[in-house]
Design a protein around this nucleic acid. Structure first.
Lengths: 198, 198
DNA sequence: GTCTATAGGTGGATAGAC
DNA sequence: GTCTATCCACCTATAGAC
């Protein structure tokens, strides 16, 4: 039945790990099959066996990133009640990315959007949509519980929150300055009446 | 004395115009000499005559973009007194970029930062530094005149402003949604006690 | 599932005629 | 200042042996 890798076995995972790191640091147009093969000490042909085309690889990269992110959000929902805490935990997800000297995979791909195969563009928007939905839900809940200040549309504020975090990562990376990202994140939280620490 | 184009003659300007458009839409790694040559109906060799290496072209792109931007800021300073108006005019500069279906040149290059030749990286930071200095000055002045609400460091708030505008452009472009950018910009202004309209 | 080998194309860049 | 012609490195991708 399985005459071809489905991207779930160990080899495929290692390839995705390596490609993800490269994509987050150099962009989708900034790395090649040769780069992946070199880091894993295999041949380009071997990588092509698991991911026939770069478009396939790109779609799987976004899908896995999305799944991992969604899992992290589900864990927050399962372990945290306070909406302010949820927002802090959300920002910590971004913090960990830039702390590892990476850009958000989807923020990176957003820059290259017009050069991407259409399936990747669709998957990319799905990622941002999911972030927006989750954040809007937390903000709405926070407004009702009185733990978060949201004067305007929760949905619009959710979008703006994603925007500032992506932008802060983008610019901070040019300065190699993690503190710069944290400062912007702190401001974004403060506007919601949420302190950096509980 | 001038045996070689200095990037200031008409041909060079047309090349820079074309390259700028391509770079803002596809990124520095997303266009080639062939793309420029095709749009201008000349040969690649002719483009290389004006800009021998792509690194040369990239540095000149950022330098010209920076100069144009600085000129626009100087014009704002020369024609507007009210700090809230200055901030609205500043945001209008970004608005015009995305309205032309482009990303900020330097925001785009920031994504590709680690793949850029070092001279381009230096020029890139200089652009963001200049933005930050101008904005911080306007915010500080606005705070003193009472026309802008700035509770924290003007410098840090200036950075955060650049971050949210760059991030809003980045994400809005994936949705082809100018309104999404405008909404984020409006929020950013509102936090400073500045309305969208005077 | 990984390898060697290679195809077919495009990248940036240069030489030299006009 | 623009052209033709070309170089060489690299790209994505495939064929076929092991």
């Amino acid at each position: 039945m399985k005459s071809r890798s489905n991207g779930q076995n160990p080899s495929s995972q290692r390839i995705l790990d390596t490609a993800e790191q490269l994509a987050q640091r150099r962009g989708f147009n900034g790395f090649s099959y040769a780069d992946i093969a070199e880091q894993l000490a295999v041949t380009k042909a071997s990588v092509h066996y698991h991911f026939p085309s770069k478009a396939d690889l790109g779609v799987r990269l976004i899908a896995r990133y999305h799944e991992t992110f969604a899992g992290a959000l589900a864990k927050i929902d399962a372990t945290v009640d306070d909406e302010a805490d949820k927002l802090r935990r959300y920002i910590a997800l971004y913090d960990e990315v830039i702390a590892h000297d990476r850009m958000c995979l989807c923020g990176m791909f957003a820059a290259e959007y017009s050069t991407l195969p259409e399936p990747m563009q669709v998957a990319l928007r799905a990622f941002f949509d999911a972030n927006e939905v989750w954040l809007a839900s937390v903000l709405e809940s926070g407004r009702q519980s009185g733990r978060v200040i949201v004067r305007e549309s929760a949905r619009a504020r959710a979008r703006m929150l994603v925007d500032v975090l992506e932008g802060a990562m983008l610019v901070a990376r040019a300065y190699g300055d993690l503190a710069r990202f944290r400062s912007a994140a702190e401001f974004a939280l403060a506007e919601l009446g949420v302190g950096v620490r509980a």
